[in-house]
């Protein structure tokens, strides 16, 4: 790409950027995925992450007996045919499944790629790919779109749930930059800061799968806009190992409704207790919207995310 003279920033005598120049910086550099802005940022990548934080929330919780994945189903129109069962969760191979937040069309490409990665490994080694290797290979592809010119990054974050003989049950999160990490519990998508701060407060190492389901519903209820939880708007799945085979079980509408009911009971109990002592911390919805109070998770929320929480 030719270097344009116009891209050279105006500076004051002392070399600092004046404020009007700074304001136009975003516009000047944000159309290029592969060019750093003078502040050292890649705007397209940040915008992709922003797109994801508008998408339906996803929660993943790791326990010693398995992994719970939960997702918010955004009902766009009553006329739309509901998808059969799983809308945002995909089986990648015999050991791994993902939950998606972001652009579904982009996710389809990545899911297809991840499945190919899994089968290619199986073809080479006659064993299922270790979960972290699968995550890494998909993230390598994502990273490529932040560096090679003329391409848009994938507007997708994944939660990967899997089991392998090396590390047992594992939960990973990846974002459009190609970053990934292993988590005990984490959330992506809309209101993810609130979701994560709830997880931070309520997650316990010795949780059972049922505890984790209840917590997942609690976290989703924080992240979703609706005042009442509706089983039709929630997708809940559990990844466990049964007789040596890793299974992903999608909970039926009735089971999801039961999990929601279990959470409602707990919440009402907490509210009753809470009214006696302190008024804060009620389990209402959308309480964190727009407030700077959401505990920023150490790993990633970029500074400007507070504007959209």
């Amino acid at each position: 790409m030719p270097v344009q003279a116009a891209t050279v920033a105006k500076t004051d005598e002392d070399g600092t950027l004046d404020s009007s120049t700074q304001r136009s910086m975003a516009r000047r550099y944000d159309s290029r995925t592969t060019i750093f802005s003078p502040e050292g940022r890649l705007y397209q990548v940040e915008y992709a992450m922003e797109a994801i934080s508008q998408a339906g929330a996803c929660v993943g919780i790791l326990t010693s007996d398995g992994i719970v994945l939960a997702a918010e189903k955004k009902v766009t129109s009553p006329l739309l045919e509901p998808s059969v069962n799983a809308e945002k969760m995909y089986r990648i191979d015999a050991q791994t499944a993902v939950a998606v937040a972001g652009m579904t069309s982009d996710a389809n490409i990545l899911v297809n790629y991840a499945r190919q990665v899994g089968q290619r490994y199986l073809f080479s080694y006659r064993k299922d790919i270790p979960v972290e290797q699968l995550v890494r290979q998909v993230c390598d592809l994502k990273q490529g779109y932040t560096q090679y010119g003329g391409l848009r990054p994938f507007g997708v974050s994944f939660l990967y749930a899997g089991w392998d003989r090396l590390h047992g049950y594992q939960l990973y999160k990846s974002d459009p930059s190609g970053n990934f990490g292993g988590w005990k519990a984490t959330a992506i998508g809309s209101n993810y800061q609130n979701a994560r701060s709830t997880l931070k407060q309520k997650y316990e190492e010795e949780m059972t799968l049922d505890d984790a389901k209840t917590l997942a519903i609690r976290v989703l209820s924080k992240a979703m806009d609706a005042t009442t939880m509706d089983a039709e708007k929630v997708e809940l799945a559990v990844l466990t190992r049964v007789d040596g085979a890793v299974t992903l079980k999608h909970l039926s509408g009735d089971d999801v409704a039961a999990a929601i009911a279990a959470f409602e009971v707990i919440r009402e109990k907490e509210q009753a207790e809470g009214e006696g002592s302190s008024a804060s911390g009620s389990g209402g919805n959308g309480e964190g919207a727009g407030s700077g109070a959401a505990a920023a998770n150490a790993d990633d929320p970029p500074p400007e995310d507070e504007d959209y929480a």
């Binding site: 006659r126 064993k127 270790p130 290797q133």
Partner: peptide, 17 residues
């Protein structure tokens, strides 16, 4: 690359391929 060695079965499968 992966901080773990292949098992004999995996190494043999790779060698065969």
């Amino acid at each position: 690359r992966n901080d773990t060695a292949l098992t004999t079965a995996e190494a043999a499968a790779w060698t065969r391929k």
